[in-house]
Computed example of a mutant assay.
Amino acid sequence: MHIKNWLIGISIMASSMAFSKEAPLVSIPTHDAFFSSIAQHCGKAFEGKVAVDNQPSPAFDAKLIMFVRKCEQAELQIPFYVGDNASRTWIIKKTGSGLSLKHDHRHKDGTDDPVTMYGGHTLGAGFNQIQSFPADEYSKALFAEYGLAQSITNTWQIFIYPDVFSYRLIRDGREFRVDFDLTTPIPEPDAPWGY
């Protein structure tokens, strides 16, 4: 009887250990290729320029830098610096049902901006080089709450090619794209705000 109880205990322990380990996320080839193409630049920073902006903002008349700062098996963190403003970090995650893109916005003291962690999730396979992230329900509700109704139809796109990384925002009447030159890494910037 004691042996039976001992075996049951071992079995329960083994089951809980198996569940406590993080299971690998199922992913499809296009998502894996896209994710890996960005991750290969881990630890490197690159300068960019605005390639398209049909509603120009003086805020982006500054030095633009992306830094592939943190790479884990299922998450990439890419701060986007606009001059001295280090408030923005793009977070790309494997979710098990695709890829998500979130925008982590912080104040200089590291606290969250009220409009943060907005973004979207892939709806299809996309391509090895291009993924699209239409605004998710959380983001739409956030934009509505803060009077940013025009952003509810946002779709963000990221392109990754051997020589260039592009971040693009599109919606009705709006297009914005920054291209980063991957051929010439630059010195690593300081950590973004809050990190």
Rank of each mutant, 00 (worst) to 15 (best):
L25M: 08
L25V: 13
V26G: 10
S27W: 07
P29Y: 14
P29L: 05
T30M: 04
H31Y: 04
D32C: 07
F34Q: 07
A39K: 15
A39N: 10
A39T: 14
H41E: 04
H41D: 02
C42D: 03
G43W: 00
G43D: 00
K44V: 03
K44W: 02
E47F: 07
E47M: 15
V50T: 12
V50F: 06
A51C: 05
D53N: 11
Q55M: 05
P58N: 02
A59D: 04
F60W: 01
D61R: 13
A62W: 05
L64H: 06
I65P: 07
M66I: 09
M66R: 02
M66E: 01
F67V: 04
F67Q: 00
V68C: 01
V68K: 01
R69Q: 04
R69N: 10
K70A: 02
C71P: 05
E72D: 03
Q73K: 11
A74Y: 14
E75R: 11
L76S: 11
L76F: 11
L76C: 06
I78R: 12
P79F: 09
P79Q: 06
P79T: 06
F80Q: 13
V82P: 05
N85Q: 14
N85Y: 15
N85L: 13
A86H: 15
S87H: 09
R88Y: 15
R88W: 12
T89N: 04
T89Y: 00
W90F: 12
W90A: 13
I91T: 13
K93S: 05
K93T: 10
T95K: 03
T95F: 01
T95R: 08
S97M: 14
G98E: 05
G98F: 06
S100I: 06
S100E: 12
L101G: 04
L101H: 11
L101D: 00
K102N: 08
H103Y: 01
H103D: 12
H103E: 04
H107E: 09
H107I: 06
K108D: 03
K108R: 14
D109Y: 09
D109K: 05
D109V: 12
G110D: 07
T111A: 12
T111F: 07
D112F: 08
D113P: 10
T116L: 02
M117A: 14
G119C: 15
G119L: 11
G119P: 14
G120E: 15
G120Q: 08
H121N: 09
H121P: 15
H121S: 11
T122V: 01
L123K: 14
L123T: 10
G124F: 12
G124T: 08
G124R: 14
G124V: 14
G126E: 06
F127T: 10
N128D: 07
N128R: 07
Q129G: 01
Q129H: 09
Q129R: 12
I130A: 00
I130H: 08
Q131G: 01
Q131T: 02
S132L: 06
P134V: 06
A135P: 03
D136V: 00
E137T: 15
E137Q: 11
Y138M: 07
S139K: 00
K140S: 14
A141M: 10
A141F: 05
L142C: 13
F143P: 02
A144P: 03
Y146A: 02
L148Y: 09
A149R: 08
S151I: 13
I152G: 04
T153S: 07
T155P: 05
T155Q: 07
